[in-house]
């Protein structure tokens, strides 16, 4: 009866864009950090940096605002490809895959 994807926009429109399905018992949890490439103007980071002194926090510089993506994946070997193709735009963003931990076996499917 459920017709669909969740509020996040779901798995994307293509269906078959890549390996799908939840992480099985052998899967791992991973974090991908995406941030603006060095040298690219980051107005969000600048806005944060400008706001901090007003709150009494001085001496903060080099603020960059990016995003954190958490996921569970059966085959972590394809993560770089997922990053290159979807999670980050290599023209403007760098990504970093954080050391992955095995998913707890009690995790519901």
């Amino acid at each position: 009866m459920s017709a669909s994807a969740g509020p996040s926009g779901g798995a994307g429109p293509s269906g078959g864009a890549g390996p799908s399905g939840g992480a099985g018992p052998s899967g791992v949890r991973a974090r991908v950090l995406v941030r603006p490439k060095e040298g690219i103007l980051d107005p969000q980071g600048q806005a944060v940096e400008r706001a901090l002194p007003a709150l009494g926090f001085t001496g903060v510089s080099g603020v960059r605002v990016g995003r954190l993506i958490e996921l569970e994946i059966a085959d972590p070997a394809v993560l770089p490809e997922i990053c290159e193709r979807l999670l980050a735009n290599p023209l403007i963003e760098d990504y970093e895959i954080e050391p992955a931990n095995p998913v707890a076996p009690t995790q519901p499917a």
């Binding site: 996040s8 926009g9 994307g12 429109p13 293509s14 864009a17 979807l86 963003e93």
Partner: peptide, 16 residues
């Protein structure tokens, strides 16, 4: 498209 979630245009480009 697709709420512009993730990054503008990033999800739509994979639409069939």
């Amino acid at each position: 498209s697709y709420g512009d979630y993730l990054r503008v245009g990033a999800i739509a480009r994979f639409a069939p």
